[in-house]
């Protein structure tokens, strides 16, 4: 019964198990080592896929630890699709609850940043908003603008300096002590073909978060100012335009109606 054979064969691949009945070699009725080649291929190809997606995180914990954590993750969350490009989206949450990694309080946030980078890499292509298009809008209409997110856009917020730690472990800047240990927020964008991590100033995550949710520019500005008095609108608008975080704007008709009422 080939179906039963495949079930038994598959069952032993995600845990240590002897070769299933009916599996043999020319010189052995129970070829442990030969069966282990398959088990090892499964383990190695999936841990490699995760290491490829989270290279800075692997550097932070070391290859041996990363492999063990990846294997623990794979056992609980094996891929449900042959599309390994997106495998590991829930690995950061797993790492956040992974007891041996508990002391590395910033690890999960660095992993979230790396996951966002890979998603951005494979996101649909789209032209970013042309700054000149904004320049031509009448000043009294600006507040009603609603922005359409670029498919690559993510906002990653951390109560640790996750963006700096990522940059240090991704080879973007030298590894050094971080004297000013504070939370960091960042945009992950891919305006053309290169994925970029753009650090955000105070309340930037609030501002971009509200815009990405479809709130008007006036609403997002108001919310960000409420969150942090240090919010600098022109700085954030410059980031918005330079990073290509959005593709287009539309005037929010509903909102206008609500204002009038």
């Amino acid at each position: 019964m080939p179906e039963a054979t495949q079930s038994a064969f598959a069952a032993g691949l995600l845990k240590a198990a002897p070769p299933p009945a009916g599996v043999m070699a020319w010189n052995s009725p129970s070829p442990h080592r030969r069966y282990s080649v398959y088990r090892n291929n499964v383990s190695a190809s999936l841990t490699d896929a995760l290491a490829a997606r989270f290279p800075a995180s692997e550097r932070i914990v070391g290859a041996e630890f990363f492999q063990a954590m990846a294997e623990a993750f794979i056992r609980v969350h094996p891929p449900r699709s042959p599309l390994l490009l997106i495998y590991g989206d829930d690995f950061p949450d797993f790492a956040a609850a992974f007891e041996p990694a508990r002391e590395i309080v910033y690890l999960a946030d660095v992993m979230r940043l790396e996951a966002a980078r890979t998603r951005a890499y494979h996101a649909a292509d789209a032209a970013s908003l042309d700054p000149q298009a904004l320049a031509s809008i009448k000043p009294d209409r600006l507040g009603d603008l609603v922005f359409l997110s670029h498919p690559a856009l993510s906002i990653v917020s951390s109560s640790h300096p996750a963006a700096t730690i990522w940059a240090m472990n991704a080879g973007e800047r030298p590894i050094a002590p971080i004297p000013d240990w504070r939370g960091e927020d960042a945009l992950v964008v891919r305006p053309r073909m290169t994925v970029e991590v753009v650090p955000l100033p105070p309340a930037g995550a609030s501002f971009f978060g509200h815009l990405a949710q479809g709130r008007t520019l006036a609403e997002a500005t108001g919310a960000a100012m409420t969150d942090d008095a240090a919010f600098d609108l022109s700085e954030n608008l410059a980031i918005l335009l330079r990073a290509g975080a959005f593709t287009a704007t539309r005037k929010d008709q509903d909102d206008e109606d609500r204002d009038r009422a």
Partner: peptide
Amino acid sequence: AWSTHDGVFLSDLLPLPYTQETLFR
């Protein structure tokens, strides 16, 4: 070869027995 079983993708090219039944499938 096969690589998916019960919805789990095993990410390897796994071997199958060669029978009339597998030939048909």
